[in-house]
Write a protein that binds this DNA or RNA. Sequence first.
RNA 1: GCGGAAAUAGCUCAGCUGGUAGAGCAUCAGUUUCCCAAACUGAAGGCCGCGGGUUCGAAUCCCGUUUUCCGCUCCA
Length: 492
Amino acid sequence: MSKNTDELFKNVIAHAKEYGFVFPSSEIYDGLSAVYDYGQFGSELKNNLKTYWWKAMVQMHENIVGIDSAIFMHPKIWKASGHVDGFSDPMIDNKDSNKRYRADQLLEDKIARYDKDGKTDKAEALQIAMDEALKNEDLPRLRELIIEHEIADPVSGTRNWTDVRQFNLMFSTQMGAIADDADLIYLRPETAQGIFVNYLNVQKSGRMKIPFGIAQIGKAFRNEVIARQFIIRMREFEQMEMQFFVRPGTEMEWYKQWKETRLQWHLALGTDEAKYRFHDHVKLAHYANAAVDIEYDFPFGFKEVEGIHSRTDFDLSQHQKFSGKKMQYFDPELDADGKPYGNYIPYVIETSIGLDRMFLLTMINAFDEEDLSTDEKQDSRTVLRLHPCLAPVKAAIFPLIKKDGLPEKAREIMDKLKLDFNLQYEEKDAIGKRYRRQDAIGTPFCITVDHQTLEDNTVTIRHRDTMQQERVAADDLDKIIGKLVSWKNLLS
RNA sequence: GCGGAAAUAGCUCAGCUGGUAGAGCAUCAGUUUCCCAAACUGAAGGCCGCGGGUUCGAAUCCCGUUUUCCGCUCCA
């Protein structure tokens, strides 16, 4: 990371806090690691990103509908999805090499070694002891076994081990008022399962025909071992996911199509194409037969913002198995032989974007420190060049000075416009200062009421990016601003 | 999790070999001002991250702890 990009990232974080976009969670209590709150402008920007995604994915597609499923779900769902078994491993660190291992794997290796050396008695005894400890989730016992059997770190060669700790990706809590009897409930680590378990409900109630999609925006929770880099990896984060159900055998066409469609969604915001790249997964997850990330060139390197996965019929098949409910779809369309495709479990293409990462990307991409120095005077401004559709505040209204009836006139204009747009009114400080303050939060337009306004009802409208002004009729403002902040600019 | 660094007003920072806190900007109340920041007057704002120790006395020295940053590690 060069000094410049490092500085940029730090400046964006500082700017985000100073201007009410992102605050560290629980800050007055020293903060809570890897949890952040969105402030007055951050939540507006975040909502606008959600709206853009929802409109592009749901409203623009007749065969995609949205849902909002609960964060709490039946614990069996996470058994079926593979999250319970796949993501709770007993881990142990070697203090000398700083390497981390799965405790059970170290023991398995030792058992294999005993077997190879013909010490089958020892191998068997250790196997039984280990299985017992794993079954009882007896972590101290696992460590004892590692010590007893003199297992050394292959890297450092030492036996200087930490305690065995359980790393579980999922947060858990209890359902029911009496903790003793309560069932263990997980906070969902992904929103996708809420879609899969409702796939039949939606398909039937909406009379959906394949191919069709179900979209959802919602919070997910992962107990990351290490969470860092601001809002890139948070313990509580928000996903925007769409699961697209297709006929088996057609999944690769759809995979390719969604890959392109999703990249276009990003590029429509005007971001430099060179900032984006696709990253194909070589090693695939257990449920996928193809996977690609859309990566953005953050100041600390290319990082995943969105994933497009071909998830096969893994999830629906698993739910069919675990719930005992048929997940199949009857496809009445005729194939090449003139026979209906009939019953099958659909294949799924998933598009999944991290809203918080998208938010950070948007902030970094918009952040600009512009040098406006002239020979006489040093000057600079900090401006967020947000797309007008995304800007938290669409316009600010200023009386040029705080007297002569200008504030009243400005208020009058504001009262009409605020029905359509999120606005700010400011009369304090010099006009230039007010312009700069709006630049810092990305407000695309500033409307100024001056003495001429009182005579002919015209105002000046000042554009954030160019700092140019034009004089327009106050009565036309709703049309002028409406056109510039319309979602049509992004969707068509 | 390991190693290194940092933490003083809302922000950026100063504060000497220990003697109980300072600037600029921002904020607030006025003054001034007809279009691009830092004009004038005044006010407010600090358990010097937290806890302990050394000392007559700690922002300053020592130990612990929390948080953040950097590297390593991890990342379905």
